[in-house]
Design a protein around this nucleic acid. Structure first.
Lengths: 366, 366
DNA sequence: GTGGCGAGGTAAATTGTTTTATCAATCCGC
DNA sequence: GCGGATTGATAAAACAATTTACCTCGCCAC
């Protein structure tokens, strides 16, 4: 009766192919080393009081068996999942944008270094309605969230004010909600850009902006307004156009500004994609950049350096912002309570899309 | 001696702040609905034979308690993690590249639609040496892997030939290893590009390429060679330059080609970034694109449309390739055994970086 | 009246860790 | 040589699900 298979009914055929590979468990290591599973666990986590001899024995058994701890079991038993989530806006092809890409690269590299894995989450419509942002924690999918590309419109962020769940806002900040954040100094960068343009002699400067529900966008607008006001110019809405953060939008905005103000000699764009679109649109219309109109972008993403003319822009440390945010998030997960509010410096990168205004160009040459 | 530290003595005060929030478990739902946990589990998974009445009662209890199943417990107990991994090459700022971004966007959107989450993995040096690629499965971190940006050099891929673990190669394929893959038709696209250039009258065509260890790259080179050979031209190495897939590399390659062959009238670049770099370098040197030299790129990533001149390029359906690969991977995870080998069509996108060769330009106008 | 069967549900085993309370052995001072 | 620390390791209890084998009805046929 006792054959090779473990049958309950004598006439039953062999078990119908259970392809589950027999994994090596902590139990197996413990047997191999003649210790208990608790000891193995303690060796792996360097906790408890294990003698050097036992430590070696266990290590050896782990080596020999090729044991790897099961993540799901660790997550269930322990307190942490060692997974972080990156929350992205529901933009079509969001990841194809170099802006997000740089930030995410920074996050991933740092997370990897600190032993965390990174999960991508898109805040699709219905995401908030179904409390998905809390569900991620309630279901123990992850330990913390990095919110990228969020704006004042994302009311669900209010749920994180009490700091019950770790969340850090990346490259933005909020007036109404008290949230941990790591951000680039957009105000400072925009001031540098405006100083530079005005020092060159520009006064009739247009602004291409987008999404006023984003605080950093407003900082750029304010820097622009304040600088011109300080010089005694009153800026009205006709000097500003919405570029929707895209190349197409930037192109349209540039055309609109030129329409209203043919006398314009410079354009300041709220990001590089809009600046690239603006250069494209102006060049198409026979307006020469920078001879006729200077252009300054913002963010310093890769493609900006390889268009003609190459783009003068504000360098924002997107990679570093991501990395720092990730590091701070992990600290918070691990119990650090201090609020996070860091601002990383920006600086102007001088390239070929800016020059003296056309009325001063002769003097510059002579 | 026993000061503020956690005391064992009977007179101990309340437990020293255990901040773990009491989560609602399946047990709680079961109690609420006066059924067993098994019944709740079956209701949630639509398995077993549950009467409509009980089904309703359980659903109601779930609603009332706000229960959410614990992912870690599901993963431990069940067969799947419902997590997919995207394996990326260890390039600096890999994600900031629109090429990877498009593919990943496609993957994420599809994964989301099918109820999966996506995890990012970078194949850092040491990754293979430490068997990390297998560890991901052994540790039950994920159900399957999508390999993006891999090449013949990634020997660890051989471990997936036996199909013991689900892996799909995205936008590349292999000669030596039998691996599931979903890929763009680079050969067909390159043929279209070469046909177009030669029909315009170009014969002295340079090639900017990169990474011969990537099969799709070789397909482009072959299409280039074959077309010129068919026209009776023998191409030697001096007509080809390595552009390292980057803008800088493309710029250097273009300069080198012009140095060797001032008579060159067209350049075919293996991706858009190198094409953008080539346009930049040529324009810098006073070579006019497309009047003096035509340029064709490959991949059709966003920025190519907004440079001057806008880039003629081969459109590869990166987003769709990612989405299809993701769908196939999930099918494989779910037990489908058929090999995956899909090729998605490509097509030429005509823009402004191509024109008649300069010796024919007069005729074209006349 | 009882034997068989199917529908509906449950108890209990399983999954692989971490962690806590407990236990056995050793050491030290007196 | 014996009580009290100290050290090193263990057994067992969580953790929260899935899954299987079994149980109890009710019903129908004979």
């Amino acid at each position: 009766m006792a054959e090779t298979a473990p049958p309950t009914s004598p006439g039953a055929p062999a078990t119908p192919a259970k392809p589950t590979i027999k994994r090596v468990r902590m139990r197996d290591v413990a047997d191999q080393a003649n210790v208990s599973v608790a000891t193995v666990s303690m060796v792996l986590n360097n906790s408890g009081r294990i003698s050097p001899a036992t430590h070696r024995r266990v290590k050896h058994a782990i080596e020999k068996t090729g044991y790897r701890p099961n993540r799901m079991a660790q997550g269930l038993s322990g307190q942490y999942t060692r997974v972080l989530g990156i929350l992205l806006p529901p933009l079509r092809h969001a990841l194809a944008d170099a802006y997000f890409g740089e930030i995410i690269s920074g996050i991933c590299d740092k997370a990897d270094k600190l032993g965390y894995t990174v999960q991508l989450e898109q805040a699709k419509p219905g995401f908030i309605k179904h409390r998905k942002h809390l569900e991620l924690f309630e279901r123990r999918c992850l330990d913390g969230i990095l919110a990228v590309g969020v704006s004042d419109r994302h009311h669900f962020l209010a749920d994180f004010q009490d700091r019950s769940y770790p969340l850090i806002v990346v490259n933005n900040r909020f007036d109404h909600w008290k949230l941990d954040h790591v951000v680039s100094d957009y105000r400072g960068g925009a001031e540098q850009a405006m100083n530079y343009l005005t020092q060159l002699g520009h006064r009739r400067i247009g602004l291409i902006t987008a999404a006023p529900e984003v605080r950093t966008t407003r900082e750029i607008v304010n820097a622009y307004r304040d600088k011109l006001a300080a010089l005694g110019f009153r800026v009205d809405e006709t000097w500003m156009a919405d570029g929707r953060f895209t190349e197409e939008g930037g192109a349209e905005a540039a055309r609109a500004l030129m329409q209203h103000h043919p006398e314009m000699t410079a354009v300041f764009a709220g990001n590089d994609k809009m600046a690239v679109g603006a250069i494209y649109a102006l060049t198409q219309r026979g307006v020469c950049v920078p001879a006729d109109v200077s252009i300054v972008g913002c963010d310093d993403i890769q493609p900006g350096a390889f268009i003609t003319p190459s783009l003068t822009t504000i360098h924002t440390p997107l990679y570093e912002v991501g990395a720092v945010a990730c590091e701070r998030l992990i600290e918070r997960v691990m119990g650090k309570v201090a609020a996070v509010a860091e601002t990383l410096p920006t600086h102007l990168v001088f390239r070929d899309s800016t020059a003296l205004p056309r009325e001063l160009a002769g003097q510059g040459q002579g």
